[in-house]
Each structure stands twice: as structure tokens, then as C-alpha cells.
Computed example of a mutant assay.
Amino acid sequence: MTDRDTTARRYACFFEKVTPERINEVHALISDDVHFIDPFNDVVGRDSFEKVFHKMYEDVQQPTFKILDLAWSRDLCFMRWDFTCTQKLLGEWGVRGLTELHFDKDAKVCAHYDYWDASRHFYRKLPIVGLMIKWIASRASI
């Protein structure tokens, strides 16, 4: 097992066990200038990365990540996951996604790019916006 394998496994465990009190435990696994992108954020740096988690805990209750798979393609690791939570407007909510992980020379995560369908799994569920997106999708589909 390489250092990157170890980091990827520890990173997956971090997501499955993260709590507001444990967010800073990710420091040992990420670079100072880690780049994080998801459908809502595009931030650089440890502090900004941590702010994404703190914001998540402000916005939702009982957020849970279940890591389903880790798969490698050369130097990239892909992490497939399910996320569930309770949110004021949406109630119980969940999404399946994929994360692309890049590593620096010290085997720390230097980029974390999340891929999931925010239109289908989030925006369509919102009042007013959801109706518009459903209408647009119905016009575009066969």
C-alpha cells in the first residue's frame, strides 16, 4: 500500500466520522492550499475547506457520509459516496456522488472535486425554483 492509498483510506474514514468537533482532524490529510469544489463552493486553503464543513453543520441536521468505494486511475483516487441529512426546506434528503482526489508530493490531498447532480437532487426540490427547473427539464426531455 502506498502513502496515497493510506491517505485516501484515512480521508474516507474522516468523512464517515466527521463531527463539528472533529473537522480539524482533516489537517493531517490535506495540503495547506487544498482546492475544494462542489456544486455550491469553489475554495482554496485549509481554512476555507473547514468553513465548508462548518456551513454544512449550520445548514443541515444529522449529515452523514457513507463511503461506498475507493477506485484508482493512475494517480487519481475516486471516492463514491452517499450523503444524507435533514434540511429545513427539503426534509430528509440524500444524494449519491463521486469525489475526484488529487495528491501532492507528500501524499496529502491537494484537490477534492465533488460531482453530483445538484439540479435533480437539490434545486428541483426547492419551492418555486424547483417548479421552474422541472418545467425546463420537461421541455428538454424526450
Rank of each mutant, 00 (worst) to 15 (best):
H102Y: 02
H102W: 02
H102I: 02
F103G: 00
F103S: 03
F103K: 00
F103E: 03
F103V: 03
D104A: 11
D104I: 09
D104Y: 10
D104V: 11
D104L: 09
D104N: 15
D104C: 14
D104S: 13
K105R: 12
D106L: 10
D106M: 09
D106C: 05
D106T: 07
D106Y: 05
A107S: 15
A107W: 02
A107E: 04
A107G: 06
K108V: 00
K108L: 15
K108C: 13
K108R: 15
K108M: 13
K108Y: 01
V109F: 09
V109C: 12
V109A: 08
V109T: 10
V109E: 04
V109R: 02
C110W: 01
C110S: 14
C110P: 06
C110F: 05
C110M: 09
C110I: 09
A111K: 07
A111V: 06
A111W: 03
A111Y: 05
H112E: 11
H112I: 03
H112W: 02
H112Q: 15
Y113H: 10
Y113F: 09
Y113S: 03
D114G: 08
D114M: 13
D114W: 12
D114I: 10
Y115H: 11
Y115V: 02
Y115M: 08
W116D: 01
W116P: 00
W116V: 03
W116H: 02
W116S: 01
D117V: 07
D117F: 02
D117H: 07
D117K: 06
D117W: 05
D117S: 09
A118I: 10
S119P: 06
S119W: 03
S119R: 08
S119K: 08
S119V: 09
R120C: 10
H121T: 13
H121S: 14
H121P: 00
F122D: 02
F122K: 04
F122T: 03
F122C: 04
Y123F: 15
Y123S: 15
Y123C: 12
Y123W: 14
Y123K: 14
R124W: 01
R124S: 11
R124D: 05
K125W: 01
K125D: 06
K125F: 02
K125E: 08
K125M: 10
K125G: 09
L126T: 10
L126D: 09
L126M: 14
P127N: 11
P127H: 09
P127K: 13
P127S: 13
I128Y: 13
I128Q: 11
I128V: 12
V129P: 05
V129F: 14
V129A: 14
G130K: 04
G130M: 07
G130F: 05
G130I: 05
L131K: 08
L131M: 10
L131P: 01
L131S: 11
M132I: 14
M132R: 10
M132C: 14
M132G: 15
M132T: 14
I133S: 00
I133N: 01
I133E: 04
I133T: 04
I133R: 00
I133F: 05
I133A: 04
K134S: 15
K134V: 05
K134I: 01
K134E: 11
K134P: 04
W135K: 06
W135G: 05
W135H: 06
